[in-house]
């Protein structure tokens, strides 16, 4: 029963290229950066490390082949959002370049790797989980205040510095909402982290990010999201029918942590806490210093190397 809404006129490829040419920087990035090693591969592109020749600073470069992008307009969205929403818990966007058929986006590089390496290779305690949740919630409060929904919160999109700093990345699928259009319906995200209202194709808003944060908290407890052993379609079915997922050995968690999870993973969107409310939750008072993440990061990198 989605309200009748005028369909957004789809931009043609030429219009998209025109817009990109306005946004991107002039010049050949090959002259400005020395590409080093490949560090990531995602649906939207490949990520490399690189050295900025002039300063010696290490950066990350995300390369996307425009002809392979099913939804090019999302790329423009990503560039604009990252450029206009600078925050200590958001990976800093530096510049972007058109290189033939490819778009290169240069960003701040965080050598600690992604949170996925840490959750799959090490064991986190509640103090460390609380610290990560607080940092991500700070980014979400900032984004939601600026009418941006990330829509793809998961450990893969959380990058870590060697000092334990925690930053959100990959705005390729975010949505900018407005008073006229404060809700969305398109199914966007990663199935296992999707909120029930997204899966059941209802109108959704910023609180989908809070649900995904709750699933990410389960990753930090169990090493992976619920239903990852199932295929994606079945996982969507289970999210739609089960609602709040079971947490193995939940009784081993502290009551305050259990309550924090309940506030993130409430199927009733109105009851589900916002980022602002969660930042006041007592669980975050258990947070240990970010430096306590350093041993986990080192251990995760060792384990990844040995694979």
């Amino acid at each position: 029963n989605t309200a009748a809404r005028p369909k957004k006129k789809k931009m043609s490829d030429e219009e998209i290229m025109e817009k990109l040419r306005i946004i991107v920087a002039v010049g050949d990035p090959n002259k400005k950066y020395t590409k080093m090693e490949k560090i990531g591969q995602g649906a939207s592109g490949t990520v490399y490390t690189a050295i900025e020749i002039a300063t010696g600073m290490e950066v990350a470069i995300k390369q996307m082949n425009l002809s392979q992008q099913p939804k090019k307009e999302l790329i423009i969205n990503e560039l604009l959002v990252m450029r206009e929403n600078k925050h200590p818990n958001i990976v800093n966007y530096l510049d972007s370049y058109l290189v033939g058929e490819e778009l290169w986006v240069t960003m701040e590089y965080l050598p600690g790797g992604s949170l996925t390496d840490v959750v799959t290779e090490t064991c986190m305690d509640e103090g460390q989980i609380a610290a990560v949740c607080r940092e991500v919630l700070q980014a979400l409060e900032f984004l939601h205040y600026n009418h941006v929904i990330h829509r793809d919160i998961k450990s893969d999109n959380i990058l870590l510095g060697m000092d334990g700093s925690v930053k959100l990345t990959d705005f390729g699928f975010c949505a900018q909402i407005s008073p006229e259009q404060s809700k969305r319906t398109t199914m966007v995200g990663t199935p296992y982290w999707m909120a029930p209202e997204v899966v059941t194709r209802k109108q959704y808003g910023p609180k989908v990010d809070i649900w995904s944060l709750g699933i990410m908290a389960i990753e930090m407890i169990e090493g992976e999201p619920p239903y990852l052993n199932e295929n994606p379609l079945r996982a969507l079915y289970l999210i739609a029918t089960n609602g709040k997922p079971e947490i193995k050995e939940k009784e081993k968690l502290s009551p305050v942590f259990q309550d924090f999870l309940d506030k993130c993973l409430d199927v009733d969107v109105d009851k589900r806490f916002s980022a602002c409310e969660l930042l006041k939750h007592p669980f975050l008072k258990l947070a240990r210093p970010l430096a306590s993440l350093h041993p986990l990061i080192v251990a995760a990198k060792e384990a990844a190397k040995s694979h």
Binding site: P70, D156, M187, V188, T190, N231, L233, L236
Partner: peptide, 19 residues
């Protein structure tokens, strides 16, 4: 199967091919 496992974590937009 490692490739399949990695693809499970890919982001989807609209109706993915497997729906």
């Amino acid at each position: 199967s490692k490739k399949y496992e990695r693809k499970k974590r890919y982001t989807v937009v609209g109706n993915p091919y497997w729906m």
